[in-house]
């Protein structure tokens, strides 16, 4: 019997609609609420720090600080760049660790899903959606705390006018940067372990002891 006739009675598994994957991911987060919140907490702190540094820069730009010469300004900016890079590094390590753990502890679940007919791409999709959702929520809260704190402080020492002076758009800009960085980092940290788990033969995923 040749292959074409042999395969005639085996169809091809269809890709599930995104809505289904979204439903399952949301459920996963809801059930593991506290665990998810701790993961989200790490992302949130990193993004809060980033947002506070960005907002501080905005506030400082509005200061009529004649005393500060160009050289000192340059030094302050360098220090800030350094701080942002450090905060992002810490954030990335934390997020990668959390997502790696959340994937490895679910190898068995992944193996089971594959036995039930899930495609590799569906498994990856599931984890990326889950981490993306966490990333969106955590980044927003992080931004709210970080930027909010700095702006409140600025308002208390320089009056509410300072916020009006900075303007709505630059503040929105810090939100944009925080979201892109937070969600981006979370998803990147998930992709590698999720692909690794999805590609395993189900027998190996089921056997995996964590």
């Amino acid at each position: 019997m040749n292959n074409t006739t042999a395969n005639a009675n085996v169809g091809r598994q269809v890709q599930l609609p995104l809505r289904k994957a979204f439903e399952i991911s949301l459920k996963s987060i809801r059930i593991r609420f506290w665990r998810s919140m701790i993961t989200a907490g790490g992302i949130m702190l990193g993004i809060a720090f980033l947002a506070s540094v960005l907002s501080t820069a905005l506030v400082q730009a509005q200061m009529p600080d004649a005393a500060m010469d160009a050289k000192a300004l340059q030094a302050a900016q360098n220090r800030q760049t350094w701080l942002v890079i450090m905060s992002l590094l810490v954030c990335t390590v934390g997020i990668t660790n959390s997502m790696l753990m959340s994937v490895t502890e679910r190898y068995k679940e992944i193996g089971t899903m594959k036995c039930l007919g899930a495609l590799d791409s569906f498994v990856v999709e599931l984890f990326i959606l889950e981490s993306g959702l966490l990333g969106v929520i955590a980044s927003f809260i992080g931004w709210f705390i970080g930027a909010g704190m700095i702006l409140l402080l600025a308002m208390s020492s320089h009056g509410a006018a300072i916020v009006a002076k900075i303007g709505f758009l630059p503040i929105l800009g810090t939100l944009g940067i925080s979201m892109v960085v937070g969600v981006g980092l979370t998803m990147i940290a998930t992709i590698a372990p999720a692909i690794r788990a999805a590609k395993m033969p189900p027998a190996m995923a089921l056997r995996a002891e964590i």
Partner: peptide, 21 residues
């Protein structure tokens, strides 16, 4: 399985088989 050589199946067909057969 049902006269189909498992080694000849690609990922989509294998998932289909695991799902339905």
């Amino acid at each position: 399985i049902n006269d189909v050589d498992m080694a000849q199946l690609d990922a989509h067909e294998l998932a289909y088989l695991r799902c339905r057969t």
